[in-house]
């Protein structure tokens, strides 16, 4: 029964490398190595980010719950990011701002750098600077960073729902968003020239 290895088992390193290769390959193939394509999601001319992102999320979520159902994986043993309310909200906001200005996120900038995008390399440089800044002034906001923890909180617990029902709703919302964005994209690209 999975998970088969602990995250810092030596085997995990080898598997992580293989998974990383697949991850990078898929990101690049889907067009995530182009900042203009990525930023399209915010201007309605290209929703590839949303399409890939949510399809991946619902696929993995359905898969994990089926794996659990068949007894292949112990979901209580996998790693869940803890939820610190204030820090997560601020972090998400800053990332959104960074995304719209810089045009990448860390994973996509790594694979864009690999195919020679100079703007992606600069983004990565900026990213490292941002991390250094965070660490330099860490004592200033350490209390905030660690405040209001809700632990490994699950969204369906917060909403008071059965997890399968939540998943079903999530899938439906994702598919509706695909339909909606396809419609918007059609209208926007009729109006604006293709870049």
């Amino acid at each position: 029964m999975g998970p088969l290895f602990n995250a810092n088992d030596e085997w995990s390193f080898v598997i992580a490398l293989v998974i990383g290769i697949a991850f990078g390959f898929i990101l690049e193939s889907a067009g995530f190595s182009s900042s203009r394509k990525l930023a399209g999601v915010f201007y309605g001319y290209d929703f590839v980010v949303l399409q890939v992102f949510f399809t991946a999320a619902i696929t993995a979520a359905i898969g994990l719950l089926f794996f659990e159902y068949f007894g292949w994986i112990d979901l209580s043993a996998i790693w869940i990011n803890k939820f610190y309310v204030g820090s997560a909200i601020l972090g998400g906001g800053l990332m959104g701002l960074g995304f719209i200005i810089g045009g990448f996120c860390p994973g996509t900038s790594a694979c864009a750098s690999a195919i020679g995008k100079i703007d992606a390399m600069l983004f990565l440089g900026g990213f490292i600077i941002g991390v250094i800044i965070f660490d330099l002034f860490y004592p200033l906001y350490k209390p905030f960073y660690k405040a209001s923890s809700m632990g490994a909180s699950m969204i369906y617990d917060v909403l008071g729902m059965n997890k399968y029902v939540f998943l079903l709703l999530f899938v439906i919302v994702a598919i509706l968003s695909f339909v909606g964005t396809a419609y918007i994209q059609q209208r926007v690209s009729k109006k604006t020239k293709k870049y």
Binding site: G91, L94, L97, F104, F127, I129, G130, I133, D135
Partner: peptide, 12 residues
């Protein structure tokens, strides 16, 4: 943008 993202991902 990268720097902001770096800060954000640290907080997030």
């Amino acid at each position: 943008g990268g720097a902001l993202f770096g800060l954000g991902s640290a907080f997030g």
